[in-house]
């Protein structure tokens, strides 16, 4: 993942209140919520983002498959 991508992840976590960031000069430091529950929520959010990205891509693949099936006269054995 790129640094930009990482920054995006951190912003989402920050907006969800799961991390606190502080910028001193050129360096931005992050602090995680101390409680286990918050760590778990952060983990689930990261996991959800991964799957959301995958499934957006799957939407594109499915759209192509639907077009192809339609073009082939919609011959389905279902």
């Amino acid at each position: 993942m790129t640094l930009t991508g990482m920054g995006k992840h951190i912003r989402v976590l920050e907006q969800a209140g799961l991390v606190i960031t502080e910028k001193i000069g050129r360096v931005r430091t992050c602090k995680l919520g101390q409680r286990k529950l918050e760590e778990e929520a952060a983990w689930i959010e990261a996991y959800r983002q991964l799957w959301a990205a995958r499934y957006d891509e799957l939407d594109n693949v499915l759209e192509e498959l639907k077009q192809k099936e339609y073009a082939n006269g919609n011959v389905s054995e279902q």
Binding site: A53, R54, Y55, D56, E57, L58, D59, N60, V61, L62, E63, L65, K66, E69, S76, Q78
Partner: peptide, 24 residues
């Protein structure tokens, strides 16, 4: 997903299709 099950299943079980979406 806005597609019938046989197409979604195909996308999960065909390597050429699977690798297109598993790695966004």
């Amino acid at each position: 997903f806005d597609a019938p099950a046989h197409l979604v299943f195909e996308a999960w079980t065909t390597a050429e299709l699977f690798k297109r979406w598993w790695v966004p």
